[in-house]
Design a protein around this nucleic acid. Structure first.
Length: 229
DNA sequence: CGCCAGGGCCTCA
DNA sequence: TGAGGCCATGGC
């Protein structure tokens, strides 16, 4: 039976290192981000990106990040100072802009009360609890922030991971978020760098082959996948 | 034209 | 706890 570790190896062999979190050109930029964000602005950029990316194509998110960058809005106080309607227009291209403007403000209120140096002292469990208490941050966004912004070893589940692993036969397509996350974390070393790459590779694989209508004929995982069309 | 994209909240059983 | 509606742009 193929394992989560086997799949990781196959994805790396075929796609190579992804070096996430990807960021817009003005953002100062991959490969500057390789190994994670280095300064406070980059950390906020990844956090804001996690919210802007909710159920939205990355292309649309890039434009919104670019606009935020032009207005030097990767700054907690500036986000709190700007009006919600004005912020919504800045991030318009990312879709759901009214909701997301509100969410960014909630996040920044949280960051105001819980500065980065405090968050970094928290245990994984406590930090996740704190993030989930913020309106607009659900399980995936919380995990994205923890892994890609704060470098903590947590495996992000998303629609792609469920789609890919259930098709392969490693889980049910009705698996819960916590269920799949637990299963994967028990079968891999708790290594933030591996979790970082793995999630990015799953996204790449979902875009190239394992789309809603999959390209099974030429898929690189065809030999280990249960679903064969 | 319809479908989809790196979700989450709210409501109602 | 889970299913369904809602939010919205831009690419294909």
């Amino acid at each position: 039976m193929v394992t989560f570790s086997d799949i990781y190896g196959l994805l790396v062999d075929n796609y190579g290192a992804q070096g996430w979190w990807p960021v817009t050109p003005e953002g100062m930029v991959y490969p500057e981000y390789s190994g994670g964000p280095k300064n406070q602005k980059q950390i906020f950029e990844v956090m804001f990106g996690a919210i802007l990316a909710q159920n939205t194509s990355w292309k649309n998110v890039e434009k919104a990040i670019s606009e935020l960058n032009k207005k030097t809005l990767f700054d907690v106080d500036k986000i709190l100072a700007i009006s919600q309607d004005e912020l919504a227009q800045v991030i318009r291209s990312s879709g759901y802009y009214n909701q997301k403007a509100r969410k960014l403000k909630y996040l920044c209120s949280f960051l105001k009360e819980n500065p980065l140096n405090e968050l970094n002292k928290c245990s994984l469990g406590i930090l996740k609890e704190k993030l989930l208490a913020v309106s607009g941050i659900g399980k995936e966004t919380a995990d994205s922030i923890m892994l890609y912004s704060l470098g903590m070893p947590i495996f992000i589940i998303d629609a792609y991971s469920v789609r890919i692993f259930s098709r392969i036969g490693l889980c049910s397509k009705k698996v819960t978020y916590d269920g799949l996350q637990c299963m994967i974390e028990q079968n891999l070393d708790k290594d933030a760098q591996v979790f970082n790459e793995y999630h990015a590779l799953l996204v790449e694989h979902a875009k190239r082959y394992c789309r809603k209508k999959p390209e099974c004929e030429t898929c690189i995982l065809k030999s280990v996948c249960k679903k064969k069309i």
